Amino acid sequence: MGHHLQHCGTASRPLREEAALVGRPVRLPGCYLNGFCPDLAALKEGAEKDDQGQYAYDDIEFVLEVISKPTAVNDYGPKKAVYAEAGTGVYLIVDPYTRRCRLFTNPVDGEYKDEVTVTFGKPLDLTDTVVGLTLTTDDFEDD
């Protein structure tokens, strides 16, 4: 778990000013229990919590997940599908086991139409997304 937190911190450092939500449950379509708790998410300006203290899925603009062995199947499978179904415009997976970042954008009819993969050490261009920056991955480490 320590490596997972280290990767979350490294990956999210340049994004924190843009992000309004870190490690909070979000109600998403098809998630009837507690909802998913992304490692980092950015919300639309003006987003507000509901009566249960959670944000609505349509307030999410960006999600970042850092892979850990116990959660990898969820991050690449159910979470990716639910984020696409919810219309989350940018879904970024940082995977220290494959030493890659996978960026999913353009959700249409419950699936992401566009995907970009970069290996650690190469920049990831997010300037054409709501994130609006280039993420350097030089400091990302494998697990």
Rank of each mutant, 00 (worst) to 15 (best):
Asp39Val: 01
Pro38Ser: 01
Arg99Asn: 10
Pro38Trp: 01
Leu135Pro: 08
Asp142Leu: 10
Asp138Arg: 15
Thr10His: 02
Thr105Asn: 01
Gly9Glu: 09
Glu85Tyr: 09
Asp142Ile: 06
Thr136Ala: 07
Val130Gln: 12
Ala20Asn: 12
Gly89Leu: 02
Gly53Val: 04
Gln54Phe: 11
Gln54Met: 14
Cys37Ala: 09
Thr119Ala: 08
His7Val: 08
Lys44Ile: 03
Pro14Gly: 01
Lys44Met: 03
Ala42Gln: 09
Val90His: 01
Tyr112Trp: 10
Ala42Cys: 14
Pro25Asp: 06
Val131Glu: 00
Cys31Met: 15
Gln6Ala: 10
Val82Glu: 09
His7Arg: 13
Cys8Gly: 10
Leu28Gly: 03
Arg102Asp: 01
Lys69Asn: 06
Gly2Cys: 11
Glu141Leu: 12
Gly132Val: 05
Leu135His: 03
Glu115His: 08
Gly132Thr: 07
Cys31Glu: 15
Asp58Arg: 13
Phe62Ile: 03
Lys122Asn: 12
Gly121Val: 06
Gly9Pro: 06
Ala86Asp: 04
Tyr83Thr: 01
Gly35Asp: 05
Gly46Pro: 09
Thr137Ile: 01
Thr71Ile: 07
Thr117Gln: 13
Asn106Gly: 00
Phe120Glu: 00
Lys69His: 09
Pro107Val: 00
Leu28His: 09
Cys8Phe: 04
Val131Pro: 06
Asp39Glu: 11
Ala42Ile: 04
Asp142Lys: 14
Pro29Asp: 09
Asp109Ser: 13
Phe140Asn: 02
Leu33Tyr: 13
Lys79Leu: 03
Asp75Gly: 03
Asp59Cys: 02
Asp125Arg: 08
His3Cys: 11
Val26Ile: 15
Gly30His: 13
Phe62Val: 04
Phe120Trp: 07
Asp125Cys: 02
Asn34Ser: 14
Pro14Phe: 01
Tyr57Gly: 11
